[in-house]
């Protein structure tokens, strides 16, 4: 199974997002490089709106991810609650 990944700029806003992803995706692994953090996961990875909201204490629109995002790999499926990257085979 191929890896998917998502990378964010290292910012105060992205920290709770990264924490949520690592909590919600047990196999996911974060690698820090200067200015950025890249999260790899085998097969698929899901970003959950409610997990981020729990951490930041306010409503969060998943499309806010766009502001901090650097890159992704995998096919994307996005709705109001989840942002999922996956390689289907």
């Amino acid at each position: 199974m191929s890896n998917v990944f998502i990378a964010f700029q290292t910012t105060e806003d992205s920290r709770p997002i990264v924490e949520s992803i690592l909590a919600d995706n047990p196999g996911a692994k974060a690698t820090e490089s200067p200015g950025m953090v890249k999260i790899d996961a085998e097969g698929s990875l899901t970003v959950k709106r409610t997990s981020i909201e729990e951490r930041i204490g306010r409503a969060f629109d998943l499309q806010e991810l766009q502001v901090h995002l650097i890159t992704i790999s995998g096919h994307l499926d996005e709705d109001d609650d989840e942002f999922t990257l996956a390689w289907p085979n």
Binding site: Q66, L69, I70, T71, I72
Partner: peptide
């Protein structure tokens, strides 16, 4: 660079 690449995530999709 990172700001441009955040758009590229959409573009490569």
């Amino acid at each position: 660079g990172f700001s441009a690449q955040s758009d590229e995530a959409r573009h490569m999709t």
